[in-house]
Design a protein around this nucleic acid. Structure first.
Lengths: 141, 141
DNA sequence: AGAGATTTGTACGTATGTATG
DNA sequence: TCATACATACGTACAAATCTC
């Protein structure tokens, strides 16, 4: 399954395999991934290497880890709709610890920061939002 | 400098210290970070732990790594303005390897994916973009 | 041209801590 | 109480690319 002679590093090969299992439904949302020790027994890689593969899936938002219960395919709720009104602007940041504390964004999740026309800031977990331009305001002509 | 008895893990303490040096200008854009070996001699942490700290700064978009030349404070060009027209919508994703290759998004950087009203997809590195509604901002003053 | 040093990347093994069930 | 499972952290080794002498 994992080819040590491949140009592709072992941890990426493992991440690819798990990602495919998630995206094709073999590991459905909410399902537990095999434990690190279990994967070690199955594929022979060291725990460090396995953790690295799972770490990339965490970055991609595909799994969440709930220690020490296990690692689970992420349940993705419906996307939250964020309307961008004229005069608003938005940026995406991987928040620093200070920003995370300030806006209560979960660790590792990019934050969508909307600067409203009136100066207020709205912050959302970027991977569960859909951004749309507001409808053009009614204009009398 | 690093307190092994702190609740805060050593790798986070180191990341905090380097982040502060970057944000306050001690390490200006383009500057090389000390090598992993150099940091090891300075703070005593293992290379693994140092790499983990630097890895979090990579996720935050603060540094780029150009092996084996070194690790450098990221030069951030001006933000690219992305206009969201009525009928467009946008999402943020950490791209899978396939998407990164397709759209040439740097590793570890979230991607802003804009679905245009006509069905086209535009993809940008999310941390160097500013999103605005296409409607002109209301006049102030 | 070649040899050696430097620096990051990958991968292994080991140990200990902490929270859950 | 005990086993399970993830988190942190140490050490080691080798590879690959770049730079210098």
């Amino acid at each position: 399954m994992i080819d040590p002679d491949s140009d592709r590093p072992a941890y990426r090969q493992l991440a690819d395999k798990l990602r495919e299992d998630i995206l094709n439904g073999t590991l459905p949302p909410g399902a537990a991934l095999p434990s690190e020790e279990r994967i070690h027994q199955e594929v022979g890689l060291s725990r460090n290497t396995i953790r690295r593969a799972i770490g990339t899936l965490r970055q991609e938002g595909l799994v969440i880890v709930d220690p020490p219960r296990g690692t689970f395919v992420r349940m993705r709720g419906p996307e939250k709709l964020v309307l961008l009104e004229p005069g608003d602007s938005a940026t995406v940041r991987v928040p620093t610890p200070a920003q995370r504390r300030q806006y209560e964004v979960p660790e590792g999740v990019p934050a969508l920061i909307v600067e409203r026309a009136d100066g207020r800031l709205d912050v959302y977990p970027a991977d569960l939002t859909r951004i749309q331009s507001s409808e053009p305001p009614p204009k009398k002509k």
